[in-house]
């Protein structure tokens, strides 16, 4: 299957084209998708746009639900747990 290259917190990553951003992050071993209020790591829970646990900044737009967005070539993703924050 065709792959795309995207960037997470400054690091280039690859994913199968058409994967959701949430699946692509999990496959890349990025489990700290969001920092909770108390600083604990959080990651996708519901997979269907309900829980907002997977929200990330995609191409400069904050609070996108990673599970509802297909990953695309050149996409720039920032997690709230990422070092570039």
């Amino acid at each position: 299957m065709a792959t795309v290259t995207f960037v997470v917190d400054g690091e280039p990553r690859r994913a199968v084209a058409g994967s959701s951003v949430a699946a692509a992050l999990l496959n890349a071993g990025i489990w700290r998708v969001r920092d909770a209020v108390d600083g604990a790591p959080r990651a996708p829970l519901c997979g269907m746009g309900i829980c907002y646990e997977c929200r990330v900044t995609i191409d400069g737009e904050a609070h996108r639900r990673a599970c509802l967005v297909p990953v695309a070539e050149g996409m720039i993703i920032r997690t709230s747990g990422g070092s570039s924050e």
Binding site: S20, R42, L45, C46, G47, M48, C67
Partner: peptide, 30 residues
Amino acid sequence: RERFLPFPGWTLPRVVGIGGVQALLKAGMI
């Protein structure tokens, strides 16, 4: 949507929904 019930540790990464993991698998999760 799924009903989630809180239990100790349920906020840890890679604790996911049952329908949730089905959705993530279909969306390319390995």
